[in-house]
């Protein structure tokens, strides 16, 4: 599996660390209900199909990436920098 890092170009999967669903980007505010935190931390759509998840280019540029890909075919549809600023 290869991801095209927006900074570094196409790289082997072994350069990346996987975190989880892109849900982790939507951190509830400090006053959010307990159920919002439960959803944020634990519950997942977990689709058999297109999903978005978070990868860290650990053995590379150290960018956090949001990857749009298919969990059935492993097709990579898009790779975006979480913080933007991709070259």
């Amino acid at each position: 599996m290869r991801l095209t890092c927006p900074f570094c170009g196409p790289r082997d999967r072994r350069e990346f660390h996987y975190y989880g669903a892109a849900d982790y980007l939507n951190r509830p505010g400090p006053e959010a209900a307990a159920s919002a935190w439960d959803d944020y931390l634990h519950n997942r759509d977990n689709p058999a199909g297109v999903t978005q998840d978070l990868w860290y280019h650990e053995q590379g540029c150290a960018a956090w990436l949001k990857v749009t890909r298919n969990t059935v075919t492993h097709e990579i549809l898009a790779v975006d920098a979480v913080a933007g600023g991709a070259a």
């Binding site: 599996m1 999967r13 996987y18 989880g20 669903a21 977990n46 058999a48 999903t51 998840d53 990868w55 969990t71 059935v72 075919t73 492993h74």
Partner: peptide
């Protein structure tokens, strides 16, 4: 990585 592909890399 999340997957339903039943095959690895």
């Amino acid at each position: 990585y999340a997957s339903y592909a039943a095959r690895g890399n």
